[in-house]
Design a protein around this nucleic acid. Structure first.
Lengths: 213, 213
DNA sequence: TAGATTGTTAATCGATTAACAATC
DNA sequence: TAGATTGTTAATCGATTAACAATC
């Protein structure tokens, strides 16, 4: 049933295509060639054609790609069409900011619950959802069957919380903790965001400026 | 003066080494072999040795690596030793959460100013800093010479704001906007975080579960 | 039709892994 | 010293780029 697996490099580039195609669509442009898109994105036309052809022939010789059609196709590939029920664990500064700031619906997610253990937070409303006591997590999951969990909790609690969540049916984590979930849980999808790593990488580049070639 | 350039793949792995070495150090472990570290991190020992040897021989045959010594060396390579003055542009939910949540000092950054244009925010205090009117940005930069800017502003304002900041001496961006700064500014260091892309990638993996091999 | 541009194969390049002599 | 483990070279693997026949 499945063709050969798509490489991680290709998958990580799809969201960027999706974004650029969205911009072009908003500008009212209807079609684009791989060469033109490549110039705008700072990549090679070959790469774009290779990447897209992992999933099928979306273009037309002599014409290029229909922007809106391609955008929708990539959205489908990325899985935006099915509603993925999502919970947020940890409603501190970062958790609340994410709940308020991200466009979950546009990516096929549906935020259905927010949890924290801190009494002063419980009951507050974030993004139209009441912050619930983490003590009610089991019951909530059994009733509502969320499949994705956003982790904004302290490092020390991550491993145990993740194990609990997996046992409750969670199949993917968007992990903002300083703990590396990738090593365990081979069957669970994990995106480790690691904002600290990103800041460290930037520090390297600031400290080692490129020569002007 | 400079040796051959280090590849981006290697640089992006350094923060993860730094983190794992920090954990080991806290556990009171003193030395480790590439093989042991590789097992813990889920990578190959070859990769660790190759990566480290881009920067010099930190290990000792028959012994391995001294954890704390290696950690400090990687911190130096990442540039944590010089204080990088930093400003935050945009003090909305996400900006304020980052200011409160991140350990800037531990990575050699020093947050010295927070800016927004929204009157109701100006004057509020975030992470011990008053939110300033963006109108005073020029003067502040000329006086204080920040070199890095965190961008938490709307998409539409990004390009122009970034250009202004570069003209005011900013040499690096930690970019949380939905706009892709990488294409312009060849001489400026940019880390595009693109939380949305990460969420989309996760969506793909949730929608295409791996076969249990 | 002629020109443009794809889909796809082949060539190149870079990154990862394996192997092992050097050496602590 | 003998055993362990590095630093480093060589082999493999995968990803990117180039090229071009197919075709709209």
């Amino acid at each position: 049933m499945r063709k050969k697996a798509i490489s991680a490099s290709v998958i990580k580039r799809l969201p960027r295509y999706y974004r650029f195609l969205g911009d072009l669509s908003l500008k009212g442009i209807e079609r684009i060639s791989s060469g033109n898109l490549a110039r705008r994105m700072g990549v090679t036309a070959s790469q774009i054609r290779q990447d897209l052809n992992c999933f099928g022939g979306f273009g037309q010789q002599g014409y290029g790609y229909n922007i809106e059609q391609l955008r929708l196709a990539i959205g489908d590939i990325l899985g935006f069409s099915n509603a993925k029920k999502t919970i947020l664990i940890g409603a501190g500064n970062l958790g609340r900011a994410l709940a308020a700031h991200m466009d979950f619906a546009g990516k096929g997610y549906q935020l259905i619950g927010v949890f924290d253990k801190k009494p002063s937070l419980i009951g507050q409303v974030v993004s139209d959802l009441p912050i619930r006591d983490i003590a009610g997590l089991d019951e909530f999951c059994r009733e509502n069957r969320p499949e994705m969990a956003i982790l904004c909790i302290p490092r020390e609690e991550t491993q145990e919380t993740a194990r609990t969540l997996v046992s409750l049916g969670i199949r993917g984590f968007w992990n903002f903790t300083h703990y590396d979930l990738s090593v365990e849980f081979p069957d669970v999808a994990v995106e480790n965001v690691h904002l600290g790593d990103s800041l460290m990488t930037l520090s390297y580049h600031l400290s080692h400026p490129k020569d002007t070639k």
